[in-house]
Amino acid sequence: MSRSFVFALTSLFLAACATTSFQVPDGRLTPGAEFTVEISEGWAYSSPSSDQALFGGSATRDGMRLNRVHFVTLDDGDSLIRVARGMERPFYSTGSSELEIVELVTNSLTSIGYTTMEADNIRPTTIDGHSGIEFGLSGKWENGLNIKGDAAAIPVGDQLHLVVFLAPELHYYDALHSSVGDIIQSMDLPGSPAVG
């Protein structure tokens, strides 16, 4: 993918998000995915239709460049990112291993302007009674700014429910990491909790 195309794509999606965000009150939100989350005051939510690079909805406190939490539910064969027809992109397959899910997230982010995106601290988790994984993210935005993040990926049936948080390493990640952890833990997923 050419650098200019990536720049145009990311500029478009950031600009679109910038103009369509709206404040959400405290409370439970259906964030453009097939699950709900509890969002505290101060977050602004952008609907899926306003995001030109990623499928799903997203929330931010200080603008998408400074912090964003992305919410999406992927069906078998879905992609996390929107790209022009013919461009390569990773797809989710039902039954993917934990590491394949991690690579789906890191490779997708690398395709939309983040560079050297890597996962760390991959660990099992249980959210709303369903087993999944959580992991950390680190990389750079295309201008060289160090980015850190967190992700939670919970497969349920044929679907994968994803929350991805990204923010500059300097100040913003630490400032919001705990609040985003609460959002992740508040996920209310469809379907009966897995036994076990």
Binding site: A18, T19, S21, D62, G63, M64, R65, L66, W141, N143, G144, L145, N146, P168, E169, L170, H171
Partner: peptide
Amino acid sequence: QAILLAKTIAVSVDE
């Protein structure tokens, strides 16, 4: 990194 963050903030405040 601090300067890059300052530049990122400058663009974000435009919203």
